[in-house]
Design a protein around this nucleic acid. Sequence first.
DNA 1: TGCAGTGTTGCTTC
DNA 2: CGAAGCAACACTGC
Length: 304
Amino acid sequence: MPELPEVHTTATQLNSLIKNKVFSGTWSNYSSPHYKGKKIVKDDKYFKEFTKNILGEKVTSVDRRGKNVLINLSSGNTILVHLKMTGHLLVGKYNFNKKEGVWAANEEGPLQDPFNQYIRFVFMFSDGTCLVMSDMRKFGKITLLQSEEDIRRELGELGDEPLEKDFTFKIFNEKLNLKPNWSIKKTIMDQGLFVGVGNIYSDEAMWLTKIHPNSITSSLSPEIRKILFKNIKVVLKKGIEFGGDSMQDYRRPDGTPGKFQMRHNVYQRKGEGCKDVKCNGVIERIVVGGRSSHFCNKCQKLIS
DNA sequence: TGCAGTGTTGCTTC
DNA sequence: CGAAGCAACACTGC
């Protein structure tokens, strides 16, 4: 569930929590017996090589590109972490319990995190602290970017950053024109056009704009597009302001939950009343482009 | 008890 | 070729 605000919060906090730390070891139980190539790290050989390549390296900074966390190293290489559905990164002092075969935070780690049992990957630092990745469903990905080719392969298809100053309405409009026949929900979630919008923030942006998720992209007037453009930025910034959305698994690196889930107007509010004081509609749930979508059946208009 | 629902991405199928 | 559907995984809730 980590979308732009969650990944942004993670990267920002990590940048202060692990900057200048030096890698001293790794651990992983990445194995997943069914589906080759979809493990947290590719395979045992890759894991060993990955470890060799980061040992002794210092973290120079942490930032993000789209929904990817990027941990930059003194060697010039970058560790890419994609949290996918249930992943989150935590920092603290962790110990491995040999008897139970699990990692747990000690008094200096995020003790309250209920997801300690799902720790799949551990980066150890020379000062005794750890960066750990908890990921219940094991969809997450960790890989090392060592060349321009690696960067192109992993990040080359990503669209523009919607919160950058140079992401203007003109560019947004051109992006929408690339998917004229798609539902607007599917369009704004396409990471190849612009990055960062997932299921939660798309639903929230469409509620603010008063448009039905099944509205056809080409049918949206320039006026509506301008409002949608503004509202996508609004919800992403709100998400960052509230430290991300911890409705499900997401936690910040210090183990604390974000608070955006308290601000939902539609997401996961099926059957409840519309939050617009002038509207007495009810929130419905439908499937759009294979994804669940929540909207008000009264004030969000279908444009097609 | 069993199955729909949870969401990101990329591969397969039509 | 584009669109649709499914698979990866694990757990919750009805």
